[in-house]
Nucleic acid binder design. Sequence first.
DNA 1: CAGCCACTTGTTTTT
DNA 2: CAAGTGGCTG
Length: 777
Amino acid sequence: MAWSRTDVHSTHTGEALDDHLNRLNDAQQQSVTAPDGPVLVVAGAGSGKTRVLTTRVAWLLSEGHAMPGEILAFTFTNRAAREMKQRIAEAAGPGREPFWIGTFHATGLKILRTEGEAIGIKPGFSIFDTDDSKRLLKEVTSSLGLDSKQFNPSATRGAISRFKNDDQTPEAVLQAAAGYVDKKYAELYAGYEEALRRNNALDFDDLILRTVHLLEQNDEIRERYARRFRHVLVDEFQDTNPLQMVLVKLLSSWHGNLFAVGDDDQSIYSWRGARIENMVDFEQFFPGAAVFRLEQNYRSCGNILNAANQVIANNKRRKGKNLWTNDPAGDLLCEEEFVDEQDEAARVVDIVRQETAAGMSRGDVTVLYRTNAQSRALEDALRRGRLPYQIVGSLQFYERKEVRDLLAYLKLVANPADTVALQRVINTPRRQIGDTTVGRLLDLAARYELTPGEAAAETGVLEEELAPAAQRRVRAFFDLVTRWRSRASEGMPVPELLQAIVDDTKFESHLEQEDPTTAASRGENVAELVNAAAAFHEATDGGNLAQYLEQVALVSDPDTITDGQGTVRLMTIHTAKGLEFPVVILTGCEDDILPHINSAEDEAGLEEERRLFYVALTRAQKRVYLLHAGRRRRFGTWQEALPSRFLREVPDECIERRTLTTPQETSLWGHRPTGRGAGHRPRNRTAPPAVRPDQWGNRTAPAKTAANGPAESVDWQTDVDQSRSYYQGQVVTHSIFGSGVVARVEGAGDDMLVTVDFTESGRKHINPRFAPLVPLD
DNA sequence: CAGCCACTTGTTTTT
DNA sequence: CAAGTGGCTG
Ligand SMILES: Nc1ncnc2c1ncn2[C@@H]1O[C@H](COP(=O)(O)OP(=O)(O)OP(=O)(O)O)[C@@H](O)[C@H]1O
């Protein structure tokens, strides 16, 4: 059995490559076989960029231009890396797939694990994910005497991430700091770096930043790697950031063979530091670069491609390209309007049924959305409709509390210096070790420059600050940890270690005690985690704990897509980048969602939103549904919505538009009147209210006229004072956040939501029903 | 120290 | 609406 499989591959190696080459069009073939030197392939969606890059690798190997170990390829996700390895094995023969194919983060990590000590990184370091970073930052914030409500860890983490991606040190940030907030950010950044060092941890950005520093500062190591990588290839080049660009330059510096593919119309990560300029100005970065264009689309049928092309043509800042297809026009796109998100979700269920009746499988249908929050209503409907589905990405498995708790145990076992993990688990399950005890323990450890575990093992240290009972409990806890740690170092397989932790901590009864109603399902998650660890153990042939934790830290959303035709997949547009599906249902095609309200303010933001819409459309092969609702819950309050402006940019000849025209039709999809508090008047769907709630706020700049707004609120007698008197540009104060300027007013009455830009704390969403917002007039 | 309640804020997008 | 926080009580 094994024989025959090996045979098939090895005897067909050369022909397999020829096959692959022959199936490419001329432009693709020319790119694949381009001579040495810098090469850029610019091409639209579905034109075969990834395929070209993959075939290029196979070609380099087969032609003897490089050995497998001499090729370095960057992909956007681990999933893409895995697929690429598979395809290369098919084309170039098994065992010839390059070792160095991975994401920027995974590649940086691989280098740092072997070479990190050269820049003072201690072996055995942990990787802190976003949640770990935020927890650490929260400690740093309060240790600097700052209020973590004002300097909220999420925002600070974002700022620090930007600093790092611009290769700015804390000192440089401090130098450049203009005002109070900037100065504090610099201090937080410095404190955070120090805290990471004490925890022997690197965050996501460090995986690239520190690798760049390593290669810049150490000539020997740089030369060794740069000489090794005869060919460097980068997929999705339009979404690389400046730091990644530097890394690419360093690693390709010896041989100068860089092969990059990308599409400027699909750049959707500028908020994470990605720069389109890396691609647009490629020829300046790499003089003498050869540039290839691919224009034939092999993915989508005519109407879909036409729609996408027309929409993206509205972006001004682009080079423009001429993407065409040989495929027939196919079905029209379909726009459908609904009263609210529940009706929209009910229709998604209908569409899935319809498609499966027409011969598609559920797995052929993918539901896309702009924000993760939109998935909730969809999930409810799918569950009610008994359709199997998978939410790909955030809030899935690895973000559940019970899973994170157990992973924190493993992290602590792997890295005794990890105080974030320690604080997560030392009192979970309850061990009568409260905040005071933990605080003193950490203080002691810091004072003696020991890890907390060492401090507990030392005689006389705990005694300085802790009561005898507390000492006993703390020591008992670390006895457990030490026991696990020695088992791990004796080579106990990860799944067994994990099971030992579950057993020793009586984790199941802890779940039961915490909340009996959900204990069963959380118990299943625990079992699933053990299974996943077992799968890891198998797949990696006994991989160790550190490797397991790395793998978990670096999973990207698309990696988690399950195989199989039986489940409908739901994901954000960002997650769907680079993937393709027969049927795409794009939900929430509304202004303020797509384009998102926070991005529509400036032209650059709007254009990126349009690119998102473009990415969504171009995922589809056969059919596209564009759904939108007139009303949607946000923060538990109803918000009105208008159809996305991007829908109007889709030419009429390729789309069928089913919009609600009369109030009666509102019941078409089984809408139940959702009366809650001040009712919503039935609306004429072709003529939405002339004045939207968030607009009257804008228009009535002088405070007085605010009361002229639509009299929707039932009890405005009591409400009027607090809820009627906010308008854009108004200066208000808040008991915690200080003074700020009203940026937006949405909704009315109980549904009112005020967005305020506070001078010191940044942008916050305030519900005046609760919050003490005082106008400063 | 744990459990309970009341209060208030958050939702872009992710490696 | 959900989740985290902070305050209070036993
Ligand atoms: N020459 C070709 N003949 C037939 N099919 C092709 C050819 N080139 C590419 N394809 C197919 O077209 C689809 C899109 O290819 P690929 O994913 O490589 O495009 P891409 O440019 O990377 O897309 P995107 O930019 O949207 O990620 C794939 O299904 C691929 O198999």
